[in-house]
Design a protein around this nucleic acid. Structure first.
Lengths: 108, 108
DNA sequence: TTTATTCATTGCAATATTACGATTAATATT
DNA sequence: AATATTAATCGTAATATTGCAATGAATAAA
């Protein structure tokens, strides 16, 4: 059926998975890293930087935007994309808490 | 074409994305959390715990196993799945480093 | 106004993912 | 041996994702 049964899981589990999914493509990882590196960003830069076609980059940017991790301000013909710091911090905490599960057990 | 162009990205970007992708499904998040909670785990428990069909759980377990995050030891008719702590720690560091990108800039 | 430039959107093809019923393989139990 | 239990695998259907060419909308430059 190809459709995730979100209703079977907690809100937290769904949120973690949703964020992880957004980061689950190297192009989006690369975009995030680039945005952090240069602070102000134009989509065209990313096309050159990443080497995928412009509509493809645009689509990845849309997903990142939908997730709230980045925001885009229109500036004339270009668009300034950048990290949404508040959401980034929230996301970071959510994922970090999940990853910090105790590994000091003694099974297997 | 539905196929990710991994060759366009760095090894690090691909590794981060690959791990994030594995965590990009609530069932797998739930499985990881459950494994941490009870240390020793049998697949049947997970079917009851999570509420998806046994083949579906089995498939998610396979993906987690392929990623190296968990390992499964056969014990009679049941299988003891648990977190692969070394790999978990490596993965945690990889993701954490990525998430720790500096948010102290002043764009937008 | 005409022409570039920049980026979003649409439409499509190829591939991947999610889910489950049916079956299978293996060990336990009777 | 016959039956039950556990979990992997196979096959299939439904849906999602990835990628790009073509197009469109908007502003900038000539």
């Amino acid at each position: 059926m190809g459709v995730t049964k979100s209703e079977k899981f907690t809100t937290e589990q769904n949120e973690i998975a949703q964020l992880a999914k957004v980061l689950g493509h190297p192009a989006r990882v690369a975009i995030i890293q680039h945005l952090f590196k240069i602070n102000t960003c134009i989509c065209g830069d990313l096309v050159d930087e990443i080497g995928l076609a412009q509509p493809t980059i645009s689509q990845h940017l849309k997903e990142l935007k939908n997730s709230g991790l980045i925001k885009g301000n229109i500036e004339g013909t270009s668009v300034c994309y950048c990290i949404d710091k508040d959401n980034w911090t929230k996301m970071k905490n959510l994922i970090t808490d999940f990853l910090e599960l105790d590994t000091s057990s003694n099974c297997c």
